[in-house]
Simulated assay, not measured.
Amino acid sequence: MRTEQAVLRISIVMTFLLAAFGVLYGLFIGSGSIIFDGIYSLMDASMTLVALLVSKLITASLGENTRAKLVKHFTMGFWHLEPMVLALSGVLLMGTALTAFIGAVGSLLHNGHEVEFGRAMIFAVIQLAVAVTMIVFTRRANRQIGSNFIELDSKAWMISAALTGALLIAFIFGWAIRGTSYDWMTPYVDPAVLAVVCLFVIPMPISTVVQALSDILLVTPADMKNHVDEVAARIVSRYGFLTYRAYVARVGRGKQIELYFIVPQGEPPRRLEEWDRIRDDIGHEIGDEGPDRWLTIAFTTDLDWAE
């Protein structure tokens, strides 16, 4: 699994299978927490599918065969879709958990409900084993790929594993107290653990949503801006320019950089090849050259063109 799309495909298939199994099995044994686990997985799989489509669009826009058709309608590329998907995915996952929490509290206030804990434990063991396997798989694959989509997907599997682990502990507890003096607690086990798990799940996607919103709003990354400023300052000093203006943004995996250098009026003319060589030097010093870097470099004697 060396590509983002291949990893996401495997994750989507596994998530859809577990989601369907969870919802049906939860309905069969009457467990609201298992039903939530399935719905949460289904939501996650749907957003991972959207992420895969965006990944394919970004990759296809860089290919020679499809580039002409895509660029005709999307001349600025598809980077802007990535943070939108990440933000939407995080918000939906939090919304799903919040809805389930409200339902769990309502069930607790209405004397809970009975669950077949023996069968519930079987589901939890299977789900936990698959989730742990997928965590190892996605994290190992992403060490070389470095994808935000895979990182979010790995977090979703971690959430699923944590949720399932909590369910397994709760089901074991509920099964153990059957027929004891604590038997009156069994109707409350399922909704109680669901409420606790939801409180744990709700804040987990927040960092991803905040980063995605920063990309959507074109908030300038401080580290990226400092690096570009350092390079631009050296270029100004090296070639005797007056000053510069730098505009930097990160949009998903894309880095957008615009640099304007203010040249003194009356400077001796330079051949276009020399200006291109200066651009090459700037691009080399900035680094990260590749399909995900959008670099614009302009030279002018009028500061108004740069502001």
Rank of each mutant, 00 (worst) to 15 (best):
122 I>K: 06
96 T>N: 07
96 T>Y: 01
132 V>N: 02
74 F>T: 02
62 L>K: 14
86 L>F: 03
113 H>W: 03
62 L>V: 07
93 L>V: 14
89 S>D: 07
59 T>L: 13
67 R>M: 08
120 A>W: 01
92 L>V: 15
68 A>E: 10
83 P>I: 04
117 F>W: 02
101 F>M: 14
92 L>F: 11
91 V>A: 14
63 G>P: 03
77 G>Q: 03
99 T>H: 03
71 V>S: 11
100 A>Q: 00
133 T>C: 13
109 L>N: 10
104 A>V: 07
71 V>E: 12
117 F>I: 12
123 F>A: 13
124 A>I: 05
129 A>R: 02
122 I>G: 08
65 N>K: 15
70 L>H: 09
122 I>V: 15
76 M>W: 08
68 A>N: 09
116 E>F: 01
113 H>T: 10
92 L>Q: 08
72 K>E: 11
124 A>C: 03
100 A>E: 03
103 G>Y: 04
83 P>C: 03
77 G>P: 08
122 I>S: 03
60 A>V: 07
104 A>D: 00
71 V>N: 12
125 V>C: 01
111 N>Y: 13
102 I>R: 13
70 L>R: 11
91 V>M: 13
118 G>S: 15
126 I>W: 09
84 M>H: 04
129 A>W: 00
61 S>L: 00
125 V>S: 01
103 G>S: 12
84 M>P: 02
72 K>N: 12
91 V>F: 13
132 V>C: 12
113 H>P: 12
126 I>K: 09
79 W>I: 03
60 A>S: 15
108 L>W: 00
108 L>T: 02
86 L>G: 04
83 P>T: 09
129 A>F: 01
63 G>R: 14
73 H>D: 06
80 H>D: 06
108 L>N: 05
75 T>G: 07
103 G>M: 04
130 V>L: 05
131 A>G: 11
120 A>D: 01
63 G>M: 10
62 L>H: 14
63 G>E: 15
107 S>Q: 10
71 V>D: 12
76 M>T: 09
112 G>C: 01
103 G>C: 08
119 R>C: 07
84 M>L: 15
107 S>Y: 03
71 V>Y: 09
83 P>G: 03
90 G>N: 03
68 A>L: 08
64 E>I: 11
59 T>P: 04
106 G>I: 07
128 L>N: 05
99 T>I: 11
78 F>Q: 05
132 V>K: 02
77 G>D: 00
68 A>T: 11
107 S>C: 01
80 H>Y: 12
66 T>Y: 14
104 A>G: 13
112 G>N: 03
61 S>F: 00
115 V>F: 02
81 L>K: 06
132 V>I: 15
94 M>K: 05
69 K>F: 08
75 T>H: 10
60 A>Q: 13
98 L>A: 15
72 K>A: 11
130 V>I: 15
94 M>H: 06
